[in-house]
């Protein structure tokens, strides 16, 4: 359906924007390495079903490889910055201070409690869905500490947030058309979108009206 396609396109766009930002500017100011590492973990644990070869569709499989590949590539590009632009790297590390153990622990626990089946694959999937919902927190934390961000970084965060937000009408659509109700995805998707809501509001008020992103 249209919402699902727009959501996935928005997800793709967010990654393209991020890669372009890092490659063009040759700096990683304002981008959280911790969030990017969390995304590697999210995609690697979610797409373990690639190993079972029970592939849903070519589209699905290609996208999964794309998301795993690009997330690893982003982390590598950011690590490279240590040598190519040590000032920018140090500055980023200095600001990227969110403690991710407070996300990993609860997500692992939630995965053990809320899952569809107590198998390794399903537990990893549930863990990834919980972790994705909070993976942006180090990035948002960094943003709120520095108070401003480059326009490209805010476009990246916006596109990434829009992706999960667009999944919500997709789930409503699928409930009526397929009688499908995927409770875990829906709950974590709502949680994820809620975490973005403050950012969305400032993005709308400032960036979309041509002013820079600056926190009040």
């Amino acid at each position: 359906n249209i919402f699902r396609i727009l959501a996935d396109l928005s997800h793709l766009a967010s990654i393209v924007i991020l890669l372009e930002t890092i490659r063009k500017a040759r700096q990683i100011d304002g981008i959280s390495l911790k969030t990017q590492i969390l995304y590697v973990l999210v995609f690697c644990t979610r797409y373990l079903d690639l190993l079972t070869f029970r592939w849903t569709s070519l589209y699905n499989t290609l996208m999964k490889f794309f998301f795993i590949g690009t997330s690893v590539y982003v982390v590598k590009l950011m690590q490279d910055c240590k040598l190519t632009n040590p000032v920018s790297y140090k500055d980023m590390m200095f600001r990227d201070t969110f403690q991710i153990k407070y996300l990993l622990g609860p997500c692992a626990l939630l995965a053990l409690v809320f899952n569809y089946k107590f198998t390794v694959l399903e537990l990893c999937w549930s863990f990834s869905i919980w972790l994705e919902s909070v993976a942006i927190l180090p990035q948002l934390f960094m943003l709120s500490r520095s108070g401003k961000a480059s326009t490209l970084t805010t476009h990246y965060i916006f596109a990434l947030g829009l992706y999960r937000a667009l999944y919500i009408p997709n789930w409503i659509w699928r409930y009526y058309s397929e009688n499908r109700l995927e409770k875990l995805s829906i709950f974590t998707g709502l949680l994820q979108t809620a975490l973005y809501s403050d950012f969305f509001y400032i993005y709308y008020r400032k960036v979309m009206k041509g002013r820079g992103f600056e926190l009040p």
């Binding site: 699902r4 996935d8 997800h11 979610r46 079903d49 849903t56 569709s57 699905n60 996208m63 999964k64 998301f67 569809y116 089946k117 399903e122 999937w125 999944y167 997709n170 409930y175 009688n179 499908r180 109700l181 995927e182 409770k183 995805s185």
Partner: peptide, 10 residues
């Protein structure tokens, strides 16, 4: 309603 085990979303 059904809760399918196939994860066909990304």
């Amino acid at each position: 309603t059904t809760t399918p085990l196939e994860h066909d979303e990304l």
